[in-house]
């Protein structure tokens, strides 16, 4: 075994021992492991010369070696709860805490919004709820920020922590509820009839007029993507004043296709088409 390789493997061994001690304060670990590399290197050099044993054969598993080291040093054995994850968390905690402290102002606003939202829902939903939410939000935010910055007795701090926890739970439940509502709403509440509709209800016909207020016929309507604005298939009928129902008949184009986007859709043969009973409400001004 060459010297550099031996030294490197000793260094790796010392690193492993150090890792097995990482539940201890860094200063203690440095005290324990400081100078260890030189001691081990010399010991290994001897054992290699005598028996050919390398560092692991000479000293056994690093964890066992570390346990003997700390036991002889009068330190407590590695705790069961001091898993590597816990050790990492403990080491990272200051950074995490600083990050959370930085988020506190945002939390002050969020909890004010939560209380305002809960209050406005209690007072009643709709526009009134929105208004009361906005009215409540400003003073509640001010109060929340003040509570966040003021120094409180310890007991109050604990109590407030509980209130905060309840607030977070409420937020989670609320968000979840909203999400479920939105999802279910997409399935049923937002159902729209096929074809052209107005305010959610299918329309029976379209009566086009020109700029002079004169009724037009044979007007083909398309949307911005070129899709025909067809009359709803469920409402291709004409309901007369006497309650009788007659089917409308669509325009037929040159290829024989029925076109339901040509307005006004005429009534059945022998009956007058939908009369222009609706007068134009305004005459458009002539564009220059």
């Amino acid at each position: 075994m060459s010297v550099p390789t031996g030294l490197r493997s000793v260094a790796q061994y010392v690193d492993a021992v150090r890792a097995a001690l990482d539940d201890l304060p860094a200063e203690t670990v440095d005290d324990l492991v400081g100078g260890l590399e030189a001691d081990l290197a010399e010991s290994v050099a001897e054992s290699v010369a005598e028996s050919g044993d390398d560092v692991r054969q000479r000293f056994g598993p690093p964890a066992v070696y570390a346990a003997e080291l700390r036991s002889a040093a009068g330190l407590p054995p590695r705790g069961r709860r001091a898993t590597p994850v816990a050790a990492v968390l403990r080491r990272q905690w200051p950074a995490v805490r600083d990050g959370l402290v930085g988020l506190r102002p945002a939390w002050w606003v969020v909890r004010a919004a939560l209380v305002a939202g809960a209050a406005s829902v209690t007072l009643g939903g709709g526009y009134g709820g929105t208004a009361s939410f906005l009215v409540l939000l400003v003073p509640l935010t001010a109060l929340s920020v003040w509570l966040g910055r003021v120094r409180m007795p310890r007991l109050l701090v604990v109590g407030f922590g509980l209130v905060n926890a309840v607030g977070v739970l409420a937020l989670l439940v609320g968000v979840n509820g909203y999400w479920v509502d939105a999802r279910e709403g997409g399935g049923s509440g937002d159902w729209t009839p096929p074809g052209v509709s107005l305010d959610g209800y299918p329309i029976g016909n379209i009566q086009p007029y020109d700029a002079q207020g004169d009724p037009l016929t044979g007007v083909q309507l398309f949307d911005e993507q070129g899709r025909p604005l067809d009359l709803s298939p469920d409402h291709r009928v004409l309901v007369r004043d006497d309650g009788s129902v007659q089917e409308l008949r669509p325009q037929v184009d040159a290829t024989g296709e029925q076109r339901w986007n040509v307005y006004p859709v005429p009534g059945p043969a022998g009956t007058p088409g939908p009369a222009p009973t609706v007068a134009p409400l305004l005459q458009l001004q002539q564009q220059p």
Binding site: S43, E68, S71, A72, A73
Partner: peptide, 11 residues
């Protein structure tokens, strides 16, 4: 044992 001696020295 090596580790016992090192630990004792530290202690």
């Amino acid at each position: 044992g090596d580790a016992s001696v090192y630990g004792t020295l530290r202690r």
